[in-house]
């Protein structure tokens, strides 16, 4: 019982670690059972300030998820530091001006095929060159 309590305490302590949305190593090393959310967001804006603020938006969503769920560890990658290792990702969330790069990304495909969740916001839903198969693993198909 004592060891169980210790385990519970350690687990709680592990979850109580601050989860910084740019701490990629921390997310990778998080305790088993942690839900790992990977946001990929375009930086900057176009069409004037306050529009297409995807990096600010992703940062907001990631922080709220980490606050709401002690078992979740969200990180945000800027588009120019595209995540390469998605083997532990439970969900991939795009906030982009175009989803094309994600459509061609073999690691995203592998993660989705493994059963990771997928979300796309705004122009992230769109990929001009994508084949129907892409929309399947992006879960955006309704054939």
């Amino acid at each position: 019982m004592k060891s169980l309590l210790a385990l519970a305490f350690l687990t709680a302590a592990a979850f109580a670690q601050p989860r910084d949305i740019f701490d990629y190593t921390g997310q990778n090393n998080a305790a088993a059972g942690t839900k790992r959310l990977v946001f990929i967001a375009a930086k900057g804006t176009h069409g004037g300030g306050g529009q297409h603020e995807f990096f600010a938006g992703a940062s907001y969503l990631a922080r709220r998820i980490n606050e709401t769920y002690p078992q979740a560890f969200s990180v945000v990658y800027p588009e120019n530091n595209w995540p390469k290792d998605l083997t532990k990702a439970d969900a991939i969330i795009l906030l982009l001006n175009h989803g094309g790069k994600a459509a061609d990304d073999v690691n995203i495909k592998a993660a989705c095929d493994r059963g990771a969740g997928f979300a796309a916001i705004h122009y992230g839903v769109e990929a001009f060159s994508a084949k129907d198969e892409w929309y399947d693993h992006m879960r955006l198909v309704w054939r």
Binding site: R114, G117, F118, H122
Partner: peptide, 11 residues
């Protein structure tokens, strides 16, 4: 696996 798409969030 689940998917969520949302075309909003322009502003």
């Amino acid at each position: 696996g689940c998917g969520f798409g949302f075309t909003g969030f322009h502003f």
